[in-house]
Structures are given as structure tokens and as C-alpha cells.
Design a protein around this nucleic acid. Sequence first.
DNA 1: GCCAACGTTGGC
DNA 2: GCCAACGTTGGC
Length: 154
Amino acid sequence: MPKKHWLMKSEPSTYSIADLKRDQQTEWDGVRNYQARNFMRDDMKVGDLVLFYHSVTDPVGVAGVAEVVQASHPDVTQFDHKSKYFEPRATQEKPVWYLVDIAFVEQFPRIVPLAELRSVPALAQMELLRKGSRLSVQPVTAAEFQAVLKLARR
DNA sequence: GCCAACGTTGGC
DNA sequence: GCCAACGTTGGC
């Protein structure tokens, strides 16, 4: 099975690439969007690579790379009454929300800003750049992934 | 802080 | 099943 590539968004005030570097590994909890969940639950496999994107900050952009180290399992915050991610419909037998675990791979020497991504023809089809796109977990092609790495090292 | 775009909820 | 109202996301 060839490696797949993904992009995951996080607000750095909540969890940044520096936080992941410190922790080395984390559960990607709190995703409450079905499309994003389905990618994590059904498609993300150990070894897949992830572009770590910082949203709602200045500048917004890709901050580094992570790797999937644990495939889909239930997000335990859905069972926690005190969590803001509590899900009343979920039971232990029938969880609603799933997540993957990711590990730190690399923090880029610089953020690759969204505006710069928009200027690169090779990235024109990226989901991230689509008008109105706000999926927090999304697939990227191998070519797009490589193109972003190249920008990061420029 | 604003607001466009989107997803979800709930009345009918 | 439709769709208006509402809440959230996220760039600027």
C-alpha cells in the first residue's frame, strides 16, 4: 500500500507544531466534522505523511510534517461529560467520532504562507485553496506534498 | 472585529 | 424532505 498524504489544520493557540515537537506524539482529538472523521476513520494508515497547517494565526500556512503512527480508534473525549467535545449520541459500543495518532517529523525552517501556496501553479488544485474550503483533515496528492516541501526549503 | 461560506439542527 | 435559522470556521 503506497503512502498517502494529508493536510491537517490546527489553530496554534490550541495546538501548534512546536507543541507536537515537544510531545513527539499526539491523538488528533476534537474533530467533529463527518467528512474529516471519515478520512481519519477509513483512509489514514500508519506511515501516511501529514502537512501540519496553522490556521487562525499570522501568518496562516504550513508549519511542518507529521506522520500517522496509529490508525483509527475512538476519540475518548466524546465520552467525557466535562469535555467540550462530549457527544451525547455516542456509546462505548457505538462511538461516533474517531481519530488517528500522529508523531512529529519536522518543523519547517519557515512557515509556508497560504498566500504563497496560492501563487504556485502546481498547487492550483489543492483542496485547501478551494474557495470556501474549511475541511480540517483533507487529502493532498504526492505531487502537492512534494511541492510544499520544496517551498519550505527555499 | 468582520463577514462569507459552510455544516447542522429542528420545525413543518 | 425542505429550508430557515443558527453556530462555526477561518481568512483578512
